[in-house]
Design a protein around this nucleic acid. Structure first.
Lengths: 168, 168
DNA sequence: CTTGGAATGTCAACAAGGCTGACTTAAAGT
DNA sequence: ACTTTAAGTCAGCCTTGTTGACATTCCAAG
């Protein structure tokens, strides 16, 4: 524990002060607002909201995923997700195919229309992320990702890493 | 623009690929879940939720702040905030003092009971943030903050920086 | 073959926390 | 005096989350 001695740990643990942590907490709060703002603006007026965006994102990300899998990624109840999926299927943005092996399962896919909305939403979100990445530079981006990953719950980190591997 | 030449920009702009951006987007999604989880768990069962947490946090942060100021920080309507503040005042966690200079204003302060809850909530949230910071290291933390700041809306970044200056 | 349990879907009811719109009160400002 | 601002309130609505109960379908183990 005692790195050298000195008040605060020889190797400079100043980044672990309550003040630094509080800044990080507030940065998360304000940044998340920006993060969701652009897609939210696109969706308002359509009958959709943030919940629909999340469903569309992860269906796009893992085409053919089952409802149960999606539930565990999104961390909501099936009733909540079902309300959202029903709307998307009725409106022809998502296709729900009965499993061939296990006919209880529904495999979810975006239709062409669904892909179009996904593109619109993720273009907007990526544009902001790209601007932030560019402004901060590659070293900062690496740190950004490291801290976020360390902040996740172990279960969610597993989900996140599983997603990372199967690129589209 | 063309740093050297080569496919992708001489100075390695690989961190700006859609794939990298998508990973950042998903990292934000999963990390934010972890970020809010601990306070949420503490609050469930009490009659309070995330909205109360936010109000308590920023009143603690800027004691004596006015309702209007708090509104602009939180980015909600006064009706929404009022519902939350009324509960906190009725339960004796927040004190609303009429302004001495401008008697229309109400200045908000945490009571001892309010400070106790604030401490409980922020201890939990800081513990997670501290663990993440420690795991990632000081360089990563700097990058984390840089990217988050770049991701904020200009207005929110102003709010964030204003808050940063008046340390408690 | 039967049965248990898993995966899915659906209905109903509810709560938190956003929102808009309309309106009041009190105090400042001009 | 008149207007604007700060705050609060009432009523009603929407989205998105929750529980609980229940039906259907179908795989798999006994």
């Amino acid at each position: 524990m005692a790195e050298h001695s000195g008040q605060g740990g020889g190797e400079s643990l100043l980044f672990l002060t309550d003040e630094q942590l509080r800044k990080g907490i507030e940065a998360m709060f304000f940044a998340y607002r920006g993060f969701t703002e652009d897609p939210d603006r696109i969706l308002e007026g359509m009958d959709y909201g943030r919940a629909h965006h999340r469903a569309i994102h992860f269906i796009h990300r893992s085409p053919g995923t089952t409802v149960t899998n999606l539930l565990s990624i999104l961390g909501v109840t099936k009733q909540s997700l079902n309300r959202v999926l029903r709307a998307l299927v009725e409106d022809g943005l998502v296709e729900s195919r009965i499993g061939r092996q296990d006919k209880r399962e529904r495999h979810l896919h975006l239709t062409e229309q669904g892909r179009a909305l996904e593109r619109e939403l993720s273009d907007a979100q990526r544009a902001r992320m790209r601007a932030a990445y560019r402004a901060a530079g590659p070293v900062a981006v690496q740190g950004f990702r490291q801290v976020l990953e360390a902040m996740m719950d172990p279960d969610l980190r597993r989900q996140y890493n599983t997603l990372k591997e199967n690129g589209p």
